[in-house]
Amino acid sequence: MKPNLLIAEKIPELRVLITPKLVIMGAVASRDWQPLHHDHEWSVGEGGLPGIILNNYTQMGWIIRYVTDWSGPQGRVGGLRLTMHSPICPGNELVITGAVDTLEQATTDLNWAILKIELAVGSRIASTAWVKVALPASDNSPSPWHCSASDWHPGFRLNLQMSQGQEDAQ
């Protein structure tokens, strides 16, 4: 349970060595058949990329796994915004870090934690993500998964504090 969160509380980092197998597994499992996720020669020659790249849905999969490893299964991810600054390729050691940025009370039983998460390769921030995750408001609160559809507002639209990061592909 995470009822006593504090702003700036850090989430333990996660490190993973990205391999061709992980890039291709993620693309195929997310049913993304674009060649830049499985064909190295195409990615370099046609795409102008350093190699095959981790697709955005697999990046989201890594991010949500990172969040729910921390929150436990009662953590219900409502929204995720991902900005990709530069590619993540095989051979990169991906380091995922994050912290609580904002806390909001949604109902008497449910709080929103807005998390800022970074996916880094060495000193390069490859992607930045914001995750809005619902957590029980107290030890006695029901699971956020029991929240009614009428009380479930997972979008980021009202969170004006959130920045979008900068993309450097320009």
């Binding site: 955005n56 929204g79 995720l80 991902l82």
Partner: peptide, 27 residues
């Protein structure tokens, strides 16, 4: 998967494309 994106690439004659930002709301 994003057919509309590919139709736009064809319409503008831009053969390459990357996702720069994506946001998902889960209901």
């Amino acid at each position: 998967p994003m057919e509309l994106h590919f139709l736009l690439k064809e319409a503008f004659g831009l053969p390459n494309g990357i996702v720069t930002s994506v946001e998902l709301e889960f209901h």
